[in-house]
Design a binder for these strands. Structure first.
Lengths: 359, 359
DNA sequence: ATGAAAGCGCTAACAA
DNA sequence: TTGTTAGCGCTTTCAT
């Protein structure tokens, strides 16, 4: 590395490159931007100087004057959730393919941090902000999101809501999500077709739009099969493996008035499976279990889990694709992505004796 | 929202806030920065104006003149790998706790994209760049990393290598990793203690430093137990569930001269378990299996997987903690994090008849 | 207590 | 073909 003493304090600037190449900063800028005719001779000199000095342009200065780098920000609860991670990967992939930079922020489910992060993204000049995951939709939420949307829109950025509803169709935000109700109805139907009549929904999260929709689908399927309304049995234990485990253990301790479990998502299913095994029962022999999302390892559960496949990566891709395609912020546009059942080994007809039996 | 017509083109600037508050931009800056005495009266006026206009400072302009936001960048293969995701979460958490912004970039394993991303982070002015995950350590790698380190260092930034070696102790980079060899030796010892003598290592990746270290630990344990060198049987199928599944199927088709499998990581183990089950054999009755990393769902495999716990989130936290603590770029500093075995149900003594038997 | 003005590193007119 | 110059939005002396 041909190192001068020019590099004494911090980063190399365009001026130093210019000096070394014996040209003006304008020329260097032109060469580096590549959108302006420059004779090969000087071009080479400049390039050499830049390489020798290991120069990289200051993105902030660039952003200040010109467009700046296109940047998309994804905000999610946590990256360690397989489902969210896949969505993030989808966004990242689609963004990278277009030469956009992708920033991932996590909130741990705290609306305060979400707000903070969106603010931050406004400061950084993100052109596209994607909020991922279901939320409880109360007045505070509606107001908050309306503010995001307005503010982002005012500075020419776009807001996409992934798997959460728009607070109001008039707001400048795109919505992309799965048809949770349809998916839930389908998999409940699958259980019903196998002969189950007493199915508990494990993992309700009242107020959470995604879960509420699944519960709605579950109830709808029950109704379609002519079951009375009180056949529905929803346990609002929330999401996560631990919650599923705890709730299932509790449930098995009290009553066994059910032959199948519809878990709110695959992590809940994992916890439930473990709890069932701990109780000395077998899946699907004694109890059938289904999940939601088809995370990559659902196939490796014991037994392999029958679940609803929600193409998470595609959700992420779709979010950026749609946002970038659609030229005017077609307010209130709502995109629903389809899902389908993946049948594996966690469902079979209920035990004939009418209830689960100890092994 | 008290909206003026000031907001016509793009973002609200500090000047508009100044006008609305009837003060100079300097005063606004002082109020917003909060590091300068300002009389409460004007302070309130400015704050009100800023809120009315929904003003957010331009981070790029700020970065240009002063410190700019502290930013740490994590580079990894993919976020959908549970292990990497946890490392990223650790980095994110530790960074957020200090008010730093965290950027996640993925490379898909392509050194070219890694280089590109590091370059990008230099442009954006990241103060800390963390490269995560093992790599093949060839001359190209060494040269590339040396360049990163030098360049980053020249602009006052820091480089941390997580789970990959420093190309040369003189380079200004920190290394934080697990003691792969010790972990592998321990779990191999666990298998040997159970009575296994013919153990295959599934998931070698020659050149990959992390895997090579595990293979070394495996060999060391074998040697310690007085087994001949040729007792080692390493299958270089690489990582990932698919690879593990394929390689294991192949292996079962040909020979069964082994009673236990040491999978290079838990995803490989997942694939192997599936392949073994597909072949009509049972774990651990016919074959014992162990993994590496203890990903969150390892407990839900069939059977629950005995594996080596590598506290991934702690690795991420440690990376930023150490990098931020240590004031001079203590070149070549090497930090080793400990691991331990998590015993579950995938290991038992080998079948007494001397080999696996069909069910 | 507050304003005016000088840049931060870069790009894009405008000159030469 | 290349150089000069005026900002981009902000912070920070230096005056007032």
């Amino acid at each position: 590395m041909g190192s001068d003493m020019t590099t004494s304090k911090g980063r190399v600037t365009i001026r130093e490159v210019a000096e070394r190449a014996g040209v003006s900063v304008a020329t260097v800028s032109r060469v580096l931007s590549g959108n302006y005719p420059v004779p090969p001779a000087t071009r080479t000199r400049v390039l050499r100087a830049a390489r020798d000095l290991d120069y990289v342009a200051n993105a902030h200065a660039r952003a200040l004057v010109g467009g700046g780098r296109k940047m998309v920000a994804v905000v999610l609860r946590q990256v360690t959730s397989p489902f969210y991670a896949q969505v993030a990967e989808g966004v990242e992939a689609e963004a990278a393919a277009r030469g956009w930079l992708c920033l991932v922020g996590t909130t741990g489910g705290d609306p305060g941090r979400e707000l903070e992060f969106v603010q931050l993204m406004r400061e950084e000049g993100a052109r596209l902000v994607i909020l991922v995951g279901g939320v409880v939709e109360d007045d505070a939420y509606r107001e908050r999101v309306a503010r995001y949307a307005q503010a982002l829109d005012a500075s020419g950025a776009r807001l996409v809501l992934c798997g959460r509803p728009a607070p109001d169709p008039g707001i400048p935000a795109l919505v992309v999500e799965f048809d949770n109700e349809a998916g839930a109805r389908a998999i409940t139907g699958h259980l019903l077709s196998a002969g189950h009549r007493r199915i508990v929904f494990l993992g309700g999260l009242p107020g959470n739009t995604a879960l509420d929709a699944r519960v709605a689908g579950y109830r709808a399927a029950l109704a379609e099969h002519g079951l009375p309304t009180d056949a529905a049995h929803v346990i609002d234990c929330g999401l996560g493996r631990a919650a599923g485990h705890r709730a299932m253990s509790e449930l098995l301790k009290n009553t066994r008035e059910f032959t199948a479990v519809f878990a709110g998502d695959d992590m809940v299913a994992a916890g439930a499976l473990r709890a069932i095994a701990d109780a000395g029962l077998r899946v699907p022999h004694d109890i059938s279990v289904v999940g939601y999302n088809d995370i990559p390892l659902a196939e490796d559960f014991n037994p392999p889990l029958t679940t609803v496949r929600t193409p998470a990566e595609e959700l992420g891709r779709a979010a950026v694709r749609i946002a970038l395609r659609d030229p005017d912020h077609t307010a209130g546009t709502h995109h629903l992505l389809g899902t389908h059942i993946v049948v594996r080994d966690s469902v079979q007809p209920p035990p004939t004796d009418g209830g689960p039996t100890p092994v």
